[in-house]
């Protein structure tokens, strides 16, 4: 039996106060415990769409449901308690004088007592390998470290759903690898539902099984990551390219359909078998 849907978009659309349309007619369902990525070029409407999940924005038409209930002004605070949102730019999130205080910000807002907050801060920093940085000023951290503190700050809320806006944007290869590892670990160990918006096509197959392709506010595709990246017509329509290894395989005219490699490991296995 399929897991129940935790997030549902029903004919949702959003128009900015200026009259510019961000997206419209979006129908999407994300199941509990799943990993889902929204991909598309810059300005496709990914971030705006993500912000509807926890009621940072409300749809101009249609509905957004969280756990079966409509997200609106009344329900949004409750939804925000259950959905963690990691923003693209860590500097938007970090604003307190020490790492520990910043990670504690969310739990404090939940009105938890001091002992519980401290426990959660410790645990969250452990998950992202940032123990020992409690008293450091976030301004003194590197980009990758800031990102990890941001993830910890959201993990401390013990959310059921984690939303990442460009999780690997601006990170070096090591930071990218670490972030992928944390996200996958959280899914496996805690069964957290993961929703990602990204245009980093090389990273997406390492994180999710299902993608939706957004282009100029319209949903072009919703299905498996392999089907999306194997379809060059779809990708060029969305101004995107397949992952590097997939592109290489496609250019060489081999491994059509199910065998198409999406990650470096898949490609290695494929070529070691002798193509």
């Amino acid at each position: 039996m399929a897991a129940p849907n935790i997030i549902e978009f029903q004919g949702a659309g959003f128009t900015y106060p200026s009259g510019r349309e961000a997206f419209s007619g979006i129908d999407l369902a994300i199941e509990k415990g799943g990993a889902f990525a929204l991909i598309g070029s810059n300005g496709a409407g990914k971030t705006t769409l993500l912000k509807h999940i926890n009621g940072l924005l409300y749809p101009s038409h249609g509905r957004v449901l969280f756990d079966g209930k409509e997200v609106n002004k009344k329900t949004a605070p409750g939804v925000r308690d259950r959905v963690g949102f990691v923003f693209q730019n860590p500097d938007d999130q970090l604003f307190l004088p020490t790492v520990a205080q910043d990670v504690a910000f969310g739990p404090m807002n939940h009105g938890l007592d001091r002992a519980e907050v401290e426990k959660r801060v410790k645990r969250a920093l452990e998950v992202v390998d940032m123990e020992g940085y409690e008293g450091v000023h976030p301004g003194k951290l590197s980009g990758g470290e800031k990102k990890r503190v941001c993830i910890a700050g959201v993990l401390a809320l013990e959310p059921e759903v984690l939303v990442f806006d460009e999780p690997t944007g601006g990170l070096d290869p090591r930071g990218t690898r670490d972030t992928i590892r944390f996200i996958n670990k959280l899914r496996e160990e805690r069964g957290i539902t993961v929703v990602i918006a990204s245009h980093d096509v090389n990273v997406i197959p390492l994180l999710v099984e299902r993608v939706a392709v957004l282009h100029k506010g319209r949903l072009l595709f919703d299905g498996s990551v392999r089907d999306a990246f194997g379809d060059r017509g779809l990708l060029s329509k969305a101004s995107m390219v397949p992952p590097d290894v997939t592109r290489l395989a496609l250019e060489m005219g081999c491994c059509p359909g199910k065998g198409l490699p999406l990650t470096m490991n898949e490609a290695l296995r494929y070529f070691q078998k002798g193509g």
Partner: peptide, 22 residues
């Protein structure tokens, strides 16, 4: 703009101006 983004990020972590639980 940056103030707006900071406040949004705080709202996402459950911050409320009124009736804050902390």
């Amino acid at each position: 703009e940056s103030l707006h983004r900071a406040l949004t990020a705080q709202k996402a972590r459950g911050f409320r101006w009124r009736k804050n639980r902390a």
